[in-house]
Design a protein around this nucleic acid. Structure first.
Lengths: 338, 338
DNA sequence: GTGAAAGCGCTAACAT
DNA sequence: ATGTTAGCGCTTTCAC
């Protein structure tokens, strides 16, 4: 038994397909009586209009596709919530896909979502894509005229609407915060050294160093990947100098750093202060609770969705870039300001 | 400028649509020369076959839909990974949706995914759906013949393939573990008291109590919802009796409990041992690290995807239910066994 | 009140 | 080598 179609119903009642169509859509053109019988039969046989056919007809799916690099990062989950909220308010569904930081997976997903499946796309680039500047996939998307909004991990090579975090300022302000606390040697620990986001924050860090008249020491800047042993790396770092401040570029990194630092006998925040990025579920429950930079993920998602929907409705307006400021959530992993 | 179609190309070259179709698909039926010109033109104008039309034609989308109740729960994220892995290996894409524990959102998503958009569905029920036993939506799905696999939060009211955790045994074994540790008063703290999963674990808890010849005290069983103040609830619990063991039914609950218990001056695990469910990212980084029951989410996802794909390929085989055992990951939040 | 026809974008069997 | 036709499932004129 396969799915029932208008045709099947029409055959059953010996009427035309269009009559059935009108009947199930409750058109006044059809007689009460026939309408009733057809509707009953349709319900009884679980008739459902085929969305594919409708979408083809309407050349619209009322769906927006979202690609995020990493679902384990709370920031992206928050963005997803924001997107979904605005999308639903505007009658759109979202389908969310994960690129897992891989260019290949991102491209495959892009290909899948392109060409009719969705009305628009919201994307944060995979790290690999950013590192290798592999923009072919995105270019295709742009050129095939599908509305696109990039957020957080964006690229200058692509001209489209964007929502970004003020990462430069975040890096700058946070580093300055450490200095105000009295920290002398602030380390910068990044799992995303190659992404635009990581680079901007580092630039902000450098500027703060500069302004404070302190030399830039690249041994205090640690880039690592999932493959690396963070424990070992941190051990080098801690043995190199008397570190009294550490900035971790995402939540799980900050939590791991805290764990490692504590297990090596340091007191947090007395010996070393720690600040992380992304105010998620972990940071408030570790001991001591972590001071975090919040990027307002939900807000970013909302803005991205708004931009996209605006663009879908009006493809010809000029591109916009929205910059969202971060804020610092002070908790117990940083020394108190005197 | 709208999306270019075969028709547009045909018009441009003054040939028929099918000729163009064959040309872009590199058919040998078409002359080298024309093929080349058409392909070039197509590429230059970013022609992409419309997936909607193709799917309609093939009556298949090579996509499977997944609905999970809560993306902040690491268990579901793991399941998602497992599903995606197997799906990709078999040439399927997945689109993942979040029901947010709400029946309404689940239904809306169901409706969206039904009727052509996906070839099959993998779902873990929203709590509201389970509580109110609102199975209309799922019934519809079943009756409209779309392949369906339920996992974790399942329902007896729906006849389909299922992958479940052995939650009864998990509740039973874990409670016995507390007793072996020497615990006398083991509390059971659940944010999912109304879901099948929560009930089964509670039944296991009761059985262990029973076997140990201890009375069941329902004041040791705490159900709470997102709205409740867990702090307050725990305070009642801790004042009621000398609790020396607490079982928290998910990761974030276990972490919160640990936080609360510690802040009230108890030593974990000396005064009270804590075990949580779901081995995620939080439990290993809190202090002390939490002993957890792992449900092997990724494995569950893989099995669910395998079942679904099997069913898509062969709709007539009898339904299966796979039961996946849990395992206990002992860390520092439980007293050491002597 | 009902039906025929066209069309959304595409492919495939069947002419020519 | 190229074109015609039919059809996937549906809606929407426009006739009758």
């Amino acid at each position: 038994m396969k799915k029932i179609t208008l045709k099947d119903i029409a055959l059953y009642f010996h009427v035309s397909i269009s009559t059935v169509s009108k009947a199930v859509n409750d058109s006044h053109e059809i007689s009460r009586e026939l309408k009733q019988r057809i509707q009953e039969y349709a319900k009884a046989n679980h008739y459902k209009p085929n969305k594919l056919a409708l979408n083809l007809l309407n050349r619209s799916t009322k769906t927006i596709g979202v690609i995020v690099p990493n679902i384990l990062n709370y920031f992206f989950v928050q963005v997803l919530y924001g997107i979904e909220k605005v999308a639903n308010e505007n009658g759109y569904n979202i389908i969310s896909c994960i690129s897992d930081e891989s260019y290949e997976k991102e491209s495959k997903t892009l290909e899948f979502l392109d060409s009719g499946t969705v009305d628009g796309l919201i994307i944060s680039l995979a790290e690999e894509t950013q590192v290798k500047e592999r923009m072919e996939g995105l270019r295709e998307i742009m050129e095939s005229q599908i509305p696109l909004v990039l957020f957080d991990r964006v690229s200058d090579l692509i001209d489209c609407d964007k929502v970004i975090v003020d990462d430069f300022e975040a890096g700058y302000k946070t580093t300055k915060y450490f200095f105000n606390l009295g920290c002398k040697n602030v380390a910068f620990v990044s799992p995303i050294g190659n992404s635009s986001v990581g680079k901007l924050r580092l630039a902000g860090y450098k500027k703060a160093l500069d302004e404070a008249g302190r030399p830039y020491d690249d041994r205090l800047v640690v880039n690592f990947t999932a493959k690396d042993d963070l424990d070992l790396i941190m051990s080098f770092l801690l043995n190199y100098k008397t570190i009294d401040g550490i900035l971790g570029l995402d939540e799980i990194t900050a939590v791991k750093i805290l764990h490692i630092v504590k297990s090596r006998g340091y007191n947090v925040p007395k010996d070393v202060s720690i600040v992380g990025f992304t105010n998620g579920q972990l940071s408030q429950y570790v001991t001591p609770s972590l001071t975090m930079v919040s990027q307002h993920g939900k807000f970013i998602g909302e803005k991205a969705a708004e931009l996209l929907i605006k663009r879908i409705q009006n493809p010809d307006i000029p591109f916009e870039t929205k910059v969202v400021k971060t804020s610092l959530l002070v908790r117990d992993s940083t020394k108190k300001l005197q």
